[in-house]
Design a protein around this nucleic acid. Structure first.
Lengths: 211, 211
DNA sequence: TGTGAAAAGCTAACCGTTAGCGTTATGGTT
DNA sequence: AACCATAACGCTAACGGTTAGCTTTTCACA
């Protein structure tokens, strides 16, 4: 599956990387809104249609690692230690994310985002998608239906750390504050399983899906 | 202030209503994405520029009562009874919202929204704006800074009921479930004031705003 | 070497939105 | 009663992101 990619796929990946790099440079230099798609395509020496065959939108050019971010989030839940609860795993994950946000490259990137309404909105819809992914993986882990209100509420609450951690004066403290509010008392009200450790063999939910 | 509007403002309001009505009809008949702005303007017999002088975007044509919704939400906090806590006031508010969602007109409207990615995204950014408004009003009510992590986390959590209440099989139960999770134990960890009643004279926060 | 498919390209548009500028109607002021 | 500032509306033309339709190039594999 992940064998030698072959020349074709290597070239494709190279084109993709070249477009993204060119765009990022231009964005950082002149701002997201001040750079047009046609300009980027010209600068990268590709056709506009080629650009859109690699990226679904202009915003996706700037936010390239979005999928990786989501994968890491899901991984934090599925790949947690056998003795670790879901909230603890997520706290650990977000502490790492916050450290990542502090990197100089990340700082300049997020400044770029803050300067563009289009990018800000794209970011918040990205958190939304992450929320869906987190709900799915937690529900699967606990053997609950994806539509479980508690699962959704929990994921929604947790994903709130993204914007908070970016805007708080002390992001790491904000993360801890958020997770400290998830007391056993809160969670145990409805889903005692949340504080259980990782399952060895998850029992998938087989409830009703549609009428 | 709210005196006789005068012929000018009456005509303006009439134009606005006429545009919105025309658009809503067309949307319901053919779907949001299948109707173009130029078509709507032609059907309402106004210029495209006139349309955009009344509504900031195509989506705003469908989502007309967005601002009213936000006002009611804020009102639920500021206008709550002297003996009512913020969570209780919000629970009551959202129970009413859920009943509103059940109206036949609302049902068809939200079906329209669900069928259009553009409208769905617009809705979620609307919840976002509501979140900001709720944070502001709660922070003011409690005399905390707007940037208070707990305030923001709380507002974020609460606003999660909008999508949940729309998608849950039993919306009313979902609302109660969400608010039942807000235990005194949870809130008291950080903001004991959340469970206090309405203030008679709020003491505004005077802390540091920048650097 | 030939063949089929993926990748890249070109042209020309569509669609939401806005800028620039002119026209008319209205409300308040002299 | 004449007048003017301005709000409301209209027209034209464009901008910028995105896509459809179709051709050309590049590669994998026989």
């Amino acid at each position: 599956m992940t064998e030698e990619p072959g020349r074709r796929e290597r070239k494709k990946a190279a084109t993709r990387r070249h477009i993204a790099d060119t765009a990022r440079e231009m964005f950082l230099e002149r701002g997201f809104d001040a750079v047009g798609i046609r300009e980027i395509a010209a600068a990268a020496d590709v056709a506009v249609t080629t650009l859109f065959s690699h990226f679904p939108s202009k915003e996706a050019l700037a936010f390239d690692e979005g999928q990786k971010r989501e994968d890491r989030l899901v991984q934090a839940v599925t790949g947690r230690g056998a003795e670790q609860t879901i909230p603890d795993a997520l706290r650990e994950h977000f502490r790492a994310v916050v450290e990542d946000f502090a990197r100089p490259a990340a700082v300049t990137f997020w400044r770029l985002v803050d300067d563009s309404p289009a990018l800000r909105e794209y970011a918040s819809t990205m958190w939304q998608r992450h929320e869906d992914a987190l709900t799915t993986v937690i529900a699967a882990d606990l053997g609950l239906p994806k539509s479980s209100t508690t699962c959704r509420a929990f994921s929604h609450y947790v994903l709130g750390v993204y914007p908070l951690a970016r805007e708080a004066p002390d992001p790491m403290a904000a993360v801890d504050e958020i997770f400290d509010l998830i007391t056993p008392g809160w969670i145990e009200i409805d889903v005692s399983g949340f504080h259980g450790a990782a399952r060895t063999g998850p029992e998938p939910y087989h409830g009703a899906e549609s009428s």
